[in-house]
Design a protein around this nucleic acid. Structure first.
Length: 472
RNA sequence: GCUUGUGUGGUGUAGUACGGCCCAUCAUAGUGGGUUUUCAUCCCGCCGACCCGGGUUCGAAUCCCGGCACGAGCACCA
């Protein structure tokens, strides 16, 4: 048996269980209690790439079934699809909103009760926990179907059970080794109004149930998600067995931490934004997709980044420099060069010099010309002052500004300079603070949003009120 | 505690189902150099790893046993 030669695998691993002639269906299901973050981009990119590669479909699903702990944010329903399209390069084939589908989930809850694999439990959370730990069945478990159906009605009735009084459970087995799987809850009562459907429903499904039913209904073939949801798969597999359905192929990845980002949660960000701690979802200190986009990170850079990390189940911590490196490769050839002088110091030029001219906007690619007009002198950075230097693309000068040569005459340091220009600021996000550097920016006509390379500093983007630093 | 998952250089990653082609791949970071009228881009070099201990075998990153470390779940959150 000839063994295949070991070669380095490139890109994403092959998708298991792809059946010829069957379109694979993938899904990504964020909670619209806020906008998307860096971490979400993994799910979108990986699922989106597989869908594209196999000519399958990508479903974007809003899992908005919690009105209490994670209340939905209305603008998210419009913005998340835009963010998804920006990242994937194509719009999702289907968009599903769970809150539109509550009657369907109710129908399956009723089926579950009628099929005797679901029951209404009126034990308190604490009481049930005792049963779960002791592996004993709770008294509600043996109630008859009609009794359960009656209680189910009571859950849906304003004058019946109140939040906390009752939940619907999936009957599994209280002697299961894994405590997480023992008669897990499928639905509970919530009376906080939902921003989309108001108080039309009292009983809302929980994630494990809603997601499981919807995946089946939508014909999802592959679920790719974090391994923190492994027990979720095990719970849902038990439910699928009850319904006689086949569970999709499931792939997991480990937890990713970005060294530069602390512990941000969507809920916390939302609170902070609403409290004015941050200027908005694209505040430059936040790890959101909006911020990444604002900071000039290209969707393709995120794609390369996530492909490189692959689909391992290892928990990892990565530095942002890896992402920046991918981004630099993409933006450099299209980023015009621009001079920004920090701690601007005037340098009067004496001697003979052509005082007007042009300089290429990019050393290798034709991105147009930059014009300059020199009157008395130029601005240079304080750090460069007082030594013989070469003004880039202009002339050699001595320590006080006497022009010594137009052509480059020796190996003296080359520095950047600005003739005229105008005051501007460069904002640099650093952890939870923003560093603002004052300086003189070269006159230019680049529109807001242009990514430029600030010579000898790094990449930046032009905003309404100044420059925003991207990365080195 | 119970359940479940993961351990390859500083950081990621390939290789692990079928042991030899692996004195271990690629990238990033660091470092040295080259190109360049930028401390950028590009190019080249260097650096540096199979969690530990046993076992099986002619041969183990890969198989077996036992440890250790770290993560996640056990919510009327997603």
């Amino acid at each position: 048996m000839e063994k295949k030669i070991k070669t380095r695998r490139e890109g994403l691993p092959d998708l298991p269980n792809v059946i010829e002639g069957v379109k694979p269906v993938f899904r990504f299901a964020p909670n619209p209690n806020g906008l998307l973050s860096f971490g979400h981009s993994r799910g979108l990119i990986i699922n989106g790439m597989y869908a594209k590669k196999h000519d399958g479909e990508l479903i974007l699903r809003f899992d908005d079934t919690d009105t209490t702990v994670k209340p939905p944010m209305m603008p998210a329903y419009d913005i998340i699809p835009e963010e998804q399209e920006w990242l994937c390069g194509f719009p999702a084939h289907r968009i599903i909103i769970a809150s539109d589908r509550i009657p369907v989930y109710h129908e399956y809850i009723a089926k579950m009760i009628s099929g005797e694999f679901g029951y209404v439990c009126t034990c308190s959370a604490d009481d049930f926990k005792v049963h779960r730990v002791a592996m004993t069945e709770c008294p509600c478990r043996d109630n008859s179907i009609s009794d359960n159906l009656g209680k189910w009605q009571k859950m849906n009735d304003k004058n019946g059970f109140q939040p906390g009084d009752a939940v619907v459970r999936v009957k599994t087995d209280m002697s299961l080794k894994n405590p997480a799987l023992r008669d897990w809850p499928a639905a509970r009562i919530q009376t906080n109004p939902h921003p989309r459907v108001g108080d039309a429903y009292r009983v809302w499904p929980l994630l494990d149930f809603q997601s499981a039913v919807e995946d089946h209904l939508q014909g999802v073939t592959h679920i790719i998600r974090g391994k923190d949801l492994m027990d979720s798969t095990r719970k849902q597999t038990l439910l699928y067995a009850h319904f006689g359905w086949q569970y999709p192929e499931t792939i997991y990845w480990g937890r990713v931490k970005v060294h530069e980002y602390g512990g941000f949660s969507t809920s916390q960000m939302r609170r902070d934004i609403e409290a004015g701690v941050y200027s908005g979802w694209d505040d430059i200190r936040l790890p959101t997709l909006g911020t990444l986009k604002r900071r000039g990170i290209q969707a393709k850079a995120l794609e390369s980044f996530w492909i490189e990390l692959g689909l391992t189940q290892k928990d990892i911590a990565v530095p942002l420099s890896t992402l920046y490196s991918h981004n630099t490769k993409i933006i450099d050839s299209s980023s015009p060069r621009l001079a920004f002088i920090r701690e601007a110091t005037p340098m009067t030029l004496t001697g003979v010099l052509e005082r007007t001219g042009t300089i290429a906007a990019h050393p290798k690619v034709d991105l147009g010309q930059r014009e300059y007009h020199i009157d008395q002198g130029v601005w240079i950075e304080a750090e460069d002052y007082g030594k013989p230097v070469r003004l880039m693309d202009l002339c050699d000068i001595d320590s006080v500004g006497n022009i010594e040569s137009i052509d480059r005459s020796d190996k003296r340091p080359v520095i950047h300079w600005v003739a005229g220009g105008s005051p501007s600021t460069l904002r640099i996000p650093k952890g939870d603070e923003i560093i603002t550097v004052e300086g003189i920016l070269e006159t230019n006509s680049h529109p807001v949003g242009t990514i430029v390379q600030l010579e000898r500093i790094g990449y930046g983007i032009i905003e309404d009120d100044g420059l925003l630093m991207l990365h080195d």
